[in-house]
């Protein structure tokens, strides 16, 4: 039992922040993100004996959190973050430039199917194959989605240099 507590504590310290970020970008609500992370760890505690490989802990926690998120949105369908909350975000996150706010806003508008692989790649540092495993889709779909997610961000930011390059080459 003492080992279980230590193991759990280590998981919380190692991954709670990443999970919070992941949850936040999917639900775009700070308090809800924290609730979901709390519930994720409650479930993780109950199922901790099933975690055989410590290296797989992060992916395991993400899977639990995604299920928790799906449960939540099934019960309470998601609503888009109103634009007037951007000011709050600016204050709370300390965004110091117009471009940062714009990027923040652009990420917030990404549909979950594009946002999730991007989060796993940038925040989680996972490869396309690993993301495919976590999201239970094929690696090709992951590549398409991460590509499209970035293109969408470039477009939303009006970043012609990075977006139009592809068009010119076609």
């Amino acid at each position: 039992m003492a080992n279980k507590h230590l193991e759990f504590e280590a998981l919380v310290h190692a991954y709670s922040v990443d999970l919070y970020r992941y949850a936040y970008w999917l639900c775009k609500e700070k308090s809800l993100a924290e609730d979901i992370v709390q519930e994720t760890f409650v479930r993780a505690w109950k199922a901790l004996d099933k975690l055989k490989d410590a290296k797989a802990a992060k992916a395991w926690l993400i899977t639990i959190m995604r299920r928790e998120m799906a449960r939540h949105f099934k019960k309470y369908p998601a609503v888009d973050l109103p634009l007037d909350e951007v000011e709050d975000i600016q204050n709370e996150e300390g965004l110091d430039s117009v471009s940062s706010i714009a990027l923040h806003q652009a990420i917030a508008t990404l549909p979950a199917e594009y946002c999730e692989p991007l989060l796993l790649q940038v925040l989680g540092g996972y490869s396309c194959n690993e993301i495919a495993e976590i999201l239970n889709i094929n690696p090709g779909a992951v590549m398409t989605r991460t590509f499209r997610a970035r293109q969408k961000l470039h477009r939303l930011l009006g970043d012609e240099q990075t977006e139009l390059r592809l068009v010119r080459n076609k």
Binding site: F8, Q38, F41, V42, L103, H104
Partner: peptide, 22 residues
């Protein structure tokens, strides 16, 4: 920039609240 934006600041004491809750 993207990486910086995604790494939003987590609420202070999040880990301790999770452990307390547990």
């Amino acid at each position: 920039n993207l990486s910086n934006q995604l790494r939003i600041v987590a609420p202070e004491g999040l880990a301790y609240r999770i452990l307390l809750n547990q």
